[in-house]
Design a protein around this nucleic acid. Structure first.
Lengths: 126, 126
DNA sequence: CTAACATATGAACGTCTGTTCAGATGTACG
DNA sequence: CGTACATCTGAACAGACGTTCATATGTTAG
């Protein structure tokens, strides 16, 4: 295709060998704002822990309190609480207080779809 | 609701205080096999790094070679290569060789939907 | 063959992460 | 008030992670 050459990438300081400058420009144009990228990365990372993933999956079906989550997943109450905090801060789950106990559920329906797509993708390669 | 009591959870050794045994049983019944959970967690974790996420997002539009990815995202070639390996091993991206250069693209269309849902969720809270 | 190029790889290093443990906070009940 | 309960929090530590640097592999052109 295009002859390889060294180019100064617009909007940037760095010089790199580039194969297809048009594609590079298009990719740059298409980039999401870094706020969105960073927040989404954080969100995926939150789901990237087996225990937090199981928590979210459990909450996709039922509203559950902390101790029942701990019992269901065989985790310590403290570990559950720490994990839920991460999920809460990223608005993956939401909590409701009823007396002493606090019930958690998914924050919105995007999360459920995210899990659904994820499991679909993963179950194809088992 | 049900009076709190200490119960031996079936299928398990651990004893915990439980608020609603029925819910706990249902949650346990609904659990995904741990293979699937672990693989999906790995997958989400792979997407949980800003640079890998940007790589995947770039590849959602265009097939790109390693050096163009490096140029577009202002990353070192080595970092791109290491990141792509992780994504490749989890079948998030696929590679095609053409002479010296190797072109990467998304492995299947689930990935694109995953990103789409993710950005949708995230962009609501900016 | 050698030189130039595109990509991959391994080791090393500082940083981040998840769990555990001990204790703090807040709530209900007598 | 004090006790029992449900949850949260902070410190600490082992293990995992992402980048960089130097180098290896593999490919094309001369």
């Amino acid at each position: 295709m295009t002859a390889p050459k060294t180019v100064a990438i617009p909007d940037d300081l760095c010089e790199v060998k580039v194969t297809d400058l048009a594609k590079v420009r298009r990719a740059r144009k298409n980039m999401k704002p870094s706020e969105a990228v960073l927040l989404l990365a954080e969100t995926f990372r939150a789901l990237g822990d087996p225990n937090r993933l199981r928590l979210v999956h459990a909450l996709a079906r039922d509203e559950l309190c902390v101790c029942d989550l701990a019992a269901a997943l065989t985790m310590s109450q403290s570990a559950v609480s720490h994990s839920l905090r991460v999920l809460r801060q990223l608005r993956l789950v939401r909590s409701r207080k009823d007396g002493k106990t606090i019930y958690y559920r998914l924050d919105d329906e995007h999360i459920e779809r995210l899990l659904g797509d994820g499991f679909e993708h993963v179950e194809e390669q088992l």
